[in-house]
Computed example of a mutant assay.
Amino acid sequence: MLVLGVESSCDETGLALYDTTDGLLAHALHSQIAMHRAYGGVVPELASRDHIRRVVPLLNEVLQRAGRTRADIDAIAYTRGPGLAGALLVGASFANALGYALRVPMIGVHHLEGHLLSPLLASDPPAFPFVALLVSGGHTQLMRVDGVGQYTLLGETLDDAAGEAFDKTAKLLGLDYPGGPAVSRLAEFGIEGAYELPRPMLHSGNLDFSFAGLKTAVLTQVRKLGNVCEQDRANLARAFVDAAVDVLAGKALAALKQTRLKRLGVAGGVGANTQLRARLNHDAQRRGLKVYYPELAFCTDNGAMIAFAGAMRLQADPEQVQDGYGFGITPRWDLEDIRIPAPVAG
């Protein structure tokens, strides 16, 4: 079965072709970072208009790369939510119009499920069950993943997501959008221990997160310093990254201990952070655990994860095929709402 995936939940247009026999055949992505940088963040209306311009050329690109035609497509998966309403509508309307023209089945995919399953696209994928640390611009969650559609929330952020804290810290330090990668790069030049920032909820006794206080601590320090020199900026970036990584790694390892699992899958844009990966790899090796990551290209939003998640869902529960081509979107959507009932033994 050849599945076309369409991702348009925010500021990246991604399309991909995934074959359930041959794996990922081709993927293409257009990022809007350059366009939104002038505004310091994503402008929803501009994002939606750009998706409209990009989606058809990207479809032609992935078909050409894969050596396939539109007639070869057996099913279409698209991001139904969560995300920006206008951006989601572009991908959903395009996917359903194409599905109607080709008379192929459709399935709306949860954006976070795409991220959760993205480590399975790697050459060395984790086996079920595993704990997933989902760290992106808008979400920070720990999930137990027992199979496709079998997700149990273990903990989540009570305020800012880790990615939001990275972006807000970047603004405080005068760094360009997107802030996360810029903070991480600057932190490499910082002196360890030059500033001490809090590790919110690290010892809370549960698996929830909080990053608003960490961001506020950076703000307080910036105000104390007044005119921040380049080395102070690097030191603050280092202190922030060290604190965020301590919390993320500490909670992830606590989740593995609580569930008695030995496999951790890391997904989402912050999952590409080099400091976080180094810390998780180090701690996992000491404890006899293993960490799995998607390829860097699949950490941020992309069509491959949507095509893959749609293909896995259609295989796990073929009855999920959309009824007709009258589509809807779900800008706010709880991941646990898409749970597939576990098969009954015997």
Rank of each mutant, 00 (worst) to 15 (best):
P178V: 01
P178H: 00
P178S: 01
G180D: 03
A182Q: 14
A182I: 08
V183H: 12
S184H: 09
L186W: 07
A187D: 04
E188G: 10
E188F: 00
E188I: 00
I191Q: 15
G193F: 14
L197N: 11
L197W: 11
P198Y: 09
P198G: 09
R199A: 06
R199S: 05
P200E: 03
P200A: 04
M201C: 06
M201L: 15
L202K: 07
H203C: 09
S204I: 09
S204P: 08
S204H: 06
G205S: 03
G205K: 05
G205Q: 05
L207Y: 01
L207F: 00
D208P: 06
F209T: 05
F209E: 05
S210R: 02
F211Q: 04
A212E: 00
L214C: 01
K215A: 00
K215Q: 02
A217H: 02
L219Q: 10
Q221R: 15
Q221M: 12
V222M: 07
V222E: 02
V222L: 03
K224H: 13
K224M: 09
L225E: 10
L225G: 08
G226M: 04
G226S: 03
N227A: 12
C229P: 08
E230K: 06
Q231T: 10
A234H: 12
R238C: 15
R238M: 14
A239R: 14
F240P: 12
F240W: 11
F240S: 09
V241K: 10
D242C: 04
A243Q: 03
A243I: 05
V245T: 15
V245M: 09
D246W: 12
V247G: 06
L248F: 05
L248V: 04
L248D: 05
